[in-house]
Every structure is written in structure tokens, then in C-alpha cells.
Write a protein that binds this DNA or RNA. Structure first.
Lengths: 116, 116
DNA sequence: TCCTACAGTATCTTTTTGTATACTATATAA
DNA sequence: TTATATAGTATACAAAAAGATACTGTAGGA
């Protein structure tokens, strides 16, 4: 690797990705395209409206997600990944791939230490 | 991309990488190899002993970092990346690369909105 | 007339994360 | 004798993140 720890920009990516619900929100938008607020809420079980709003606002602030409001009643708001946001895909893919192996690693660890 | 959000393992990677000082600790160990506690402390400016200890313990718990204690006085404890830990490199590299571009993106954004 | 869907806010509490500071033991050096 | 380096621990505190719950306005349907 060729990252000078002093010039490390890993944090910049983490700043955007970190948040209990952000990865799954991004994955949904990447996979399913444009989604309404309520669709996201349904697809992310357990999330509260407050958290969904907060994380979407933060992702929007970073130009990773776009928010389009339709002046209707009842309201309609659509969220989608921006072109810039799509550049996060390789990171998410790398993390997912690693995570998949990590599950196996943890299972092996438990087998090796059955008495705890 | 081919990640089913329902089977998403991105969080597994984030769990390990998230923490104010974890990426820089990992980068130091990856780049400089085995390091003593005090060396790490010197190379990570601003970190307190408690945080360094805590993060190292968590990384050790995940088998990403190895801790070797020499029975000496004054104490000597060495930390190094495990083989398993090295598998995190592509993720860190992807994030660093993205972060480097992100800096430029932010600069362009500021240029476009000079009045705020 | 009351209820529901929609996309949120507002307020409060809990949990997690990080900071600050003082303290430990002991071999060695000045 | 006193100070220093080492690798921590203990305690208190502050800040950030997340959760729980109640509330808003309004068109359309039963």
C-alpha cells in the first residue's frame, strides 16, 4: 500500500459512510434507483423517521444523494443516488466482500473456542 | 453491483474500521510494521493513552492486530497487523483513493458557491 | 365526519464514543 | 536520591449518535 498515514484521506470516505443506517440506505438507492421517503422507510426495517430524515439530509449535504420535492398534497419526495454518489460503489463492494469473509472467520473462531 | 441490501455485510467491515483513531493506527502498522505502544502513541498525535489502548484492544479482539507482551521492566508490548488484518488493505486503499478525489470535489463546490 | 397516507418536526431520554487527568509499578540512569 | 520511560488503569466528564414518542398539515376516501 502507498498511503502516507499523515496524508490519509480514509476519514473522508468514512465521514460519509458512517452512520447506523447510511450503508443500507445507499445500497437501496443504488440497487433500486429512485425511491420515495416512505419506500425507503419500508425497506429499512427498524429505522425511525427521524433517523431516515437525518441521514438522508447528511447524504444530500455531501452531494451523494439527490432530493426532489414535488409540490403535492400529500407530499411526494424522491431520493436518488447522484453520479458522484455512485463513485462510492467500489468501497461498498469491497466492504461487503470483506464482511462476507469475516462472517466465516468469526464462525471458525467460535469453533476453536467452544468453551467460554 | 450485486449486493442484496438484506444480506449486506458492509457493516461488518465498518464495525472494525470505525473509531476516531482506528484507520490511522492500522495504516501505521501496515506501513511501518511492528510497533511498540509508545511508538504508536508518538505517531498518532493527539491520541490519549486510554483511546490508544481501547482501540488496540478492539482491533485485537477482531484478530486484526496482534499484541505481544515481553515480560520486562519497564514493560515492552509490541503490536502488529495479522495476516487477516492485511485483508483490510483494499478497503483502506479504496477509501483513501475516494477521499483524495473527494477533497477536489469539495473545493469545486466551494468555488461554485462563493457567497455564503 | 373521521381516518389514512405522506413527509416530515419537536422534544426528551438513552447509549455510545471520546477527552482530561491522575494514578500504578519498577528497572535504570543521573 | 530523584527523575524518567514504559504500558497501562481508574475516574469523572463532555459530546455525539441514536431511539422513543408525540405532533404537524392537508387531500382524498369510507
Amino acid at each position: 500500500m502507498d498511503i502516507e498515514p499523515e496524508l490519509c484521506r480514509v476519514e473522508d470516505a468514512l465521514d460519509i459512510l458512517v452512520g447506523k443506517w447510511k450503508p443500507i440506505i445507499l445500497l437501496h438507492l443504488l440497487k433500486n434507483g429512485t425511491q420515495r421517503f416512505s419506500e425507503l422507510k419500508r425497506h429499512v426495517p427498524g429505522i425511525t423517521q427521524k433517523m431516515l430524515t437525518k441521514h438522508l439530509r447528511e447524504l444530500e449535504e455531501e452531494d451523494v444523494v439527490e432530493r426532489v420535492v414535488y409540490p403535492q398534497v400529500p407530499p411526494k419526495v424522491e431520493y436518488s443516488i447522484t453520479e458522484y454518489g455512485k463513485s462510492l460503489e467500489p468501497i461498498l463492494a469491497a466492504m461487503h466482500e470483506w464482511g462476507t469473509k469475516h462472517v466465516l472467520h468469526k464462525q471458525q473462531k467460535i469453533k476453536q473456542q467452544p468453551s467460554s
